Simulated scan of single mutants.
Amino acid sequence: MRTRQICLLLASSILGTVEAQAEGCPTAKDDIATDRPDVTNSSLVVPTGSLQNENGVNFSIREDGRTIDGTNSRWRLGVAPCLELLVDLPTYFANVQGPGNSGFSDVSPALKWQISPIPGKVDLSVVFGLALPTGAVAIAGRGAQPYLQFPWSWELHDGWGVSGMFTEFFRPSDFTTRRITETTFVLEKQLTKEFSVFTEYVGDFPEGAGPSLLLNSGAMYHMNRTEQVDFHIAFGLNHNAPSYIVGVGYSFRIDGLFANHPR
């Protein structure tokens, strides 16, 4: 009997927490919030019953090599309040000049849970994903590669905001670099209701190898509540990073896919 009472108490506590969170979760009335063009993902999930598609193309230079990659497509589906399913489709990397490899990256499904939807405070999400071994080994590496990610954001005053992300990438089949830690930090300014700019630091720290450091800046423009175009340019801060990366993107959201969540 005591075990049953404990289980009921835990269940009611969890349900109460979910219901409380649901009041602060994104809805179809909110503007689109994307995981691009910065490396730092949004700390907000897609509204329940909404399907969001984010796309982009990049041109990068690393030493003597030139590479184009696209379409960097990410599909995101809000399946419950503060909960989304997402999948990164394979991106094709085309080596257009100098040394380098061409091929597709892995397909990577993931689950994202927004755990602190508190307006005016720090928002935080947790993401668990898995890169499946579907791409070219020279591009994506060997074997399945799970990752754990924590994007956060904090809205300040007068359109200013800061955000960041901590990610651990695990590569069990790689005998030289079994783990990569990535940290990011973003300073963002909303200039108008539709137009925002940002500057971002990105640091990748492979186990047993030197870090790759980038400075990434860009802008986002909301064409309407559910469409966004973006631009970014990144500069390498050390020899392990690309010399520079230039990219553009387009994202859109379709609302009201579930019967109880109208458009």
Rank of each mutant, 00 (worst) to 15 (best):
R253I: 07
R76W: 04
S60T: 11
T91Y: 10
G129I: 10
D174E: 14
P146W: 13
S125L: 05
Q149F: 02
L187D: 05
R225N: 14
D31N: 10
R253L: 11
A234S: 15
L51W: 07
R74N: 03
M165T: 05
G208D: 15
E188Y: 02
L9C: 11
T34C: 01
S116F: 12
G65S: 15
N240R: 13
D88E: 08
Q149C: 01
R36N: 04
R171H: 15
G24P: 05
E155D: 14
T177Y: 06
L9F: 14
E188G: 11
S163W: 08
D30W: 02
G159D: 13
D255A: 05
G49M: 09
S12F: 14
L132E: 10
Y221H: 08
P37D: 08
L15C: 11
G16V: 07
N238F: 15
R263V: 08
R253V: 05
P206V: 13
P211A: 07
S60V: 00
N72A: 03
E227A: 06
I233Y: 12
L156S: 08
V162I: 15
A219Y: 04
S102K: 03
Q114E: 13
L77W: 10
I254C: 01
T91I: 06
S196C: 00
D31A: 01
A131E: 15
S116I: 04
E84P: 01
R36F: 00
T192S: 13
N53C: 09
E23Q: 11
D123A: 10
F235W: 10
T192W: 12
A110K: 10
Y250D: 11
L124S: 03
G135Y: 02
Y244L: 06
T34I: 05
P133D: 06
Y221M: 02
V162M: 13
P99T: 06
N216Y: 03
S43D: 00
L86R: 15
F198Q: 06
G78R: 07
P81V: 05
F205D: 10
V87M: 06
E63Q: 15
N58I: 04
E155V: 13
L214S: 15
S173D: 15
E54R: 08
F128M: 11
G249V: 05
G164R: 13
L214T: 14
L51E: 04
F205K: 05
D230H: 10
I139R: 01
T34S: 00
V107H: 02
S43I: 00
T226L: 02
T27G: 11
G208V: 00
L187Y: 04
